[in-house]
C-alpha cells in the first residue's frame, strides 16, 4: 500500500536527533509489548509480514503521531483481534475507562492479493537474474503489503547479489501463499533515484533487497554494429 510508512526520500522531518544515554525501553509497557509481540510470533499467532502490514494499516495521522512501540501495540492488538485470539470487548473490559475504544483494532482496510497455491516439497525456484544483470523495479502499486518502496519504482539498477530464496511478503502478509522466490541486492545509482540535480552525487549508491516479482529485465545495450543490423526489429529498451 502507498502508505505514510514508505518514507524513503520524503522531506520535512528535520534533522536526525540523537538521544544521549538512551535506555533500551523508555517505559515498562514498551518492553512488555515488545515481549508480547515476540511471544505471539513464537506461537505463530502472527507472522512478520502481516505484523509489518498491520503497522502500515494504522491510519496515517495516527501513524505519524505514534511512537515506535505504540505502533507495535496497535499492530499486536489488531492482529490478535482479527485472528480471534482476543476481542475488542475483552480488551476494553479489562481497563475500561483508561482505554480509548477507537484505538483498539481499528485499522485501515486493504485488499488481499490474488491467492497463490503453495506447493509443498517442490524444488526451490531458479534465479531469473544473474549478478551484473541490469533490471528495472516494476511500477507496482498494490493495495496490500509490499516491500518495494515507492522511491525505487520504475528505476533501473544492477543485480549486485542473489540472496537466495525467500517467502514473498506481498502474499504472505495476507495469508495468500508463500510464493517463494529469489531476493536480490539491487544497486541503484543515487542520480537514477533522485535526479541529476538532487543532493545525491555520483559517488552514492542505494542498495535495496528486492524480490524477483518486483523486477523486470532491461535488454542489454546492443553493440553499435549489431544495432545497425537489427534496427528493423529492435523493440527498444524501456
Amino acid at each position: 500500500m502507498n502508505g505514510v510508512h514508505d518514507m524513503g526520500g520524503m522531506d520535512g522531518f528535520g534533522p536526525v536527533v540523537r538521544e544521549q544515554n538512551e535506555p533500551v525501553f523508555h517505559a515498562d509497557w514498551e518492553g512488555r509489548v515488545y515481549a508480547i509481540a515476540s511471544i505471539a510470533a513464537g506461537l505463530s499467532l502472527i507472522n512478520a509480514d502481516e505484523f509489518r502490514h498491520a503497522i502500515e494499516r494504522i491510519a496515517p495521522e495516527r501513524y505519524l503521531a505514534s511512537s515506535y512501540y505504540e505502533r507495535w501495540l496497535a499492530a499486536v492488538e489488531t492482529l490478535l483481534v482479527e485472528r480471534g485470539v482476543v476481542t475488542r470487548e475483552e480488551i476494553l473490559a479489562k481497563e475500561g475507562g483508561a482505554i480509548d475504544p477507537a484505538l483498539i483494532a481499528n485499522p485501515v482496510a486493504t485488499q488481499c492479493p490474488a491467492p497463490v497455491k503453495d506447493k509443498p516439497g517442490s524444488r526451490p525456484p531458479r534465479a531469473r537474474f544473474a549478478k551484473g544483470a541490469r533490471v528495472r523495479a516494476r511500477n507496482l502499486n498494490p493495495s496490500g503489503h509490499t516491500r518495494l518502496p515507492r522511491y525505487a519504482r520504475g528505476k533501473a539498477g544492477v543485480i549486485a547479489r542473489d540472496w537466495g530464496v525467500f517467502v514473498f511478503p506481498d502474499t504472505n502478509a495476507h495469508h495468500a501463499g508463500t510464493k517463494p522466490q529469489h531476493c536480490y541486492s539491487v544497486a541503484f545509482d543515487a542520480r537514477e533515484l533522485w535526479g541529476k540535480s538532487a543532493k545525491a552525487n555520483c559517488r552514492e549508491r542505494v542498495h535495496l533487497d528486492l524480490w524477483e516479482d518486483y523486477l523486470e529485465p532491461i535488454a542489454p545495450k546492443s553493440k553499435p554494429k549489431a544495432a545497425k543490423r537489427t534496427t528493423a526489429h529492435h523493440t527498444g529498451r524501456y
Binding site: 509497557w29 509489548v33 508480547i36 480488551i91 483508561a98 484505538l103
Partner: peptide
C-alpha cells in the same frame, strides 16, 4: 492511561 493501560489489559487477557 493510553498505551500503558492497553498493554496491561492485553497482558492480563493473554
Amino acid at each position: 492511561t493510553g498505551p500503558a493501560a492497553r498493554v496491561k489489559a492485553l497482558e492480563a487477557l493473554l
